[in-house]
Amino acid sequence: MPSSRLVVALLTLIFSLPLQAVVAETPEQKGLAIAQEVDRRDKGWGDESVNVTMVLRNAHGQESVRKNRMKTLEVEGDGDKTLIIFDSPRDIAGTAFLTYSHATRPDEQWMYLPALKRVKRISSSNKSGPFLGSEFSYEDISSQEVDKYRYKYLRDEVLDGREAFVSEYYPNYKHSGYTRQVVWTDKERYRPLRIDFYDRKNTLLKTLTYKNYTQYLGKYWRPSGLEMVNHQTGKSTTLDWDGYRFQTGLGPRDFDRNSLKRAR
């Protein structure tokens, strides 16, 4: 995109936002505007690497731990590219998972199986299935794009001392396990604080809570932990994120099928 067009687009955004606040808008318009602002404020980080520790707890409190590393490349005008490399449990160490996410057409996904040295293109229509036996489904961990949902603003609410917008998200893509998500968005930082997931029968299924946001590069807010509780089974999964690194010079070559085979 020529830089002059970029400047015009940014100026339009900057001037249109306060205007929209004045002009009466529908709950749908306001919900979309909030989601667009969340998206806009999180642009420009380039690439990101983070270590993830996943702890699965069943209803009896028994735990099992999975560790992986996640690298993400921001793609302008399309969904992000993500590479996840598993370190534990040890039997799946070296298994890697590459996703090219797209807003409107299906994501492209490949998996590398180190025991067979085989790269497999896999179906991305598995949205609602559990990711590694956890309470997170594939759609929960996939890259969030504005066009993936329709929106409806519900109300303002204070959550744990922070002013928040509460909106409903309706999935625009096929095979979602949810009829809707209720999302609490921090008014100051424009980051999610909590999400309630409603299953296909519109019953409350899960609650996701974001913990301890820290700001990186003076701009981008990232949580240090996520907790997903399944209200129907009593199981829960926590994700601890540590060692965030941004703009380390990762490029498309670190997210291609060749890189999958040598991911460590």
């Binding site: 299906p106 293109r121 896999i122």
Partner: peptide, 9 residues
């Protein structure tokens, strides 16, 4: 050759 169409490979 593989064509990945929804849940069909």
């Amino acid at each position: 050759l593989q064509a990945t169409l929804d849940a069909w490979l």
